[in-house]
Design a protein around this nucleic acid. Structure first.
Lengths: 210, 210
DNA sequence: GCTCATTTTGACCATTTGGTCAGGTTTTTG
DNA sequence: CAAAAACCTGACCAAATGGTCAAAATGAGC
């Protein structure tokens, strides 16, 4: 599910597999695994169902391939959090990366959400293994910053969840946000506003400083 | 979609409709509209598919009924935000209500998320109408608090989104949270920890006060 | 207990769905 | 350019799916 060996592929294979995975991401993100119809992926990818099944033997094979390609991109930003950096700088950069991800790959974000909401049947091992390890590592960083007096001493897990939740929200609930504000995270101005408000609240808090 | 007139119902109808809606909430929340099988709702509700269809003529009818019952509960907490109250008290109470909702009705939370992620096809009018109106009203409250110097002057929309996102996250991403922490929002201790961290961050901020 | 309305069932149906396969077409390779 | 490999198609299939219907079983009111 994580590392993928790359068999030799022709140019045609390269192109068609990419088209399929791209189309599949769209429908899986929208309708989940069970709600997605192979036919629709095929037509979105501009090819016949038979041809699609020539490249990926089954629906679940497509799903796994999409997820595998997604996980690394979802995780990447957290890896960049530098223990030796300044907390505010580091966390701001992290939040900005996550917001960018929501803006640039909203479908990936939604598919991830969908998979987790269904109980993470396909990626449970990743969550419990590599992700948990990474989160523990970064939680340690946060605790270290806290004990050095650089940040307030709050539960690192909840802090991480707050960042995940808020940044992901802009992708996952895009239709709601659009309905309420008329704009969305894809818009540069909007994204800057979100980042500004988010970081202000996170670092300074809502109550005016004395 | 919002108000529902109640036709006369026998005791049996009352009981069976409730059983169906309850089962339907579970599967719709997990698999979305398209991914849900009428058969499965029926068997979860402990009755035959035919019998289920005697109560609700079609799959989409069940879905609409479930959503209608859900929206009010989802919205209710925001309504309680009192303009004349103390911002910290009011917002803390709001967050606590939302966390409780995530704890007590995680499936309702997930179904709402699912519907919105699919583009809110069924509740778009509610989002653009009543919800938008309510949000504007409460945004005004926040602006008023800001201009009175009671809270920092941040974008009310993003502030509301932050609260929605963080509180909802505990229901929607429960499997991930469980995998990472071994616990979840249903646990009293955990929920108190979440509330504590959330309110501290939101009101005081992450950076230590001078 | 009798009658009528409500509730439940199981058989049935058309359509959709994931997937197979034999054979045709295109591309690559020697 | 010929042969082999890769690619693509359409017909086909079994199972699943949403939904119908007539008739049987059950319940309520007298």
């Amino acid at each position: 599910m994580s590392v993928e060996e790359q068999p030799r592929r022709t140019r045609i294979q390269e192109k068609n597999r990419a088209r399929i995975l791209d189309a599949a991401l769209g429908t899986f993100a929208r309708f989940g695994y069970r709600g997605t119809r192979v036919d629709q992926i095929a037509s979105d990818a501009g090819m016949s169902k038979s041809n699609l099944l020539y490249y990926f033997g089954s629906k679940s094979e497509i799903y796994k391939a999409v997820l595998a390609g997604l996980l690394d991109r979802w995780l990447a930003p957290l890896r960049t959090l530098d223990p030796d950096g300044d907390p505010r700088r580091e966390l701001t950069a992290y939040i900005e990366q996550k917001l960018r991800f929501s803006a640039n790959e909203p479908e990936a974000s939604r598919l991830f959400a969908n998979e987790v909401m269904q109980g993470a049947p396909m990626i449970r091992d990743v969550l419990e293994g590599p992700l948990k390890a990474l989160v523990e590592e970064k939680a340690e960083v946060l605790r270290h910053w806290a004990s050095a007096g650089k940040i307030r001493d709050v539960d690192p897990h909840h802090l991480i969840f707050l960042i995940w939740a808020t940044t992901q929200h802009y992708a996952d609930f895009a239709p709601q946000i659009e309905a309420l504000t008329g704009s969305g995270i894809h818009d540069d101005r909007f994204r800057k506003g979100a980042l500004e408000t988010l970081t202000t609240l996170l670092f300074e808090g809502l109550l005016p400083r004395a």
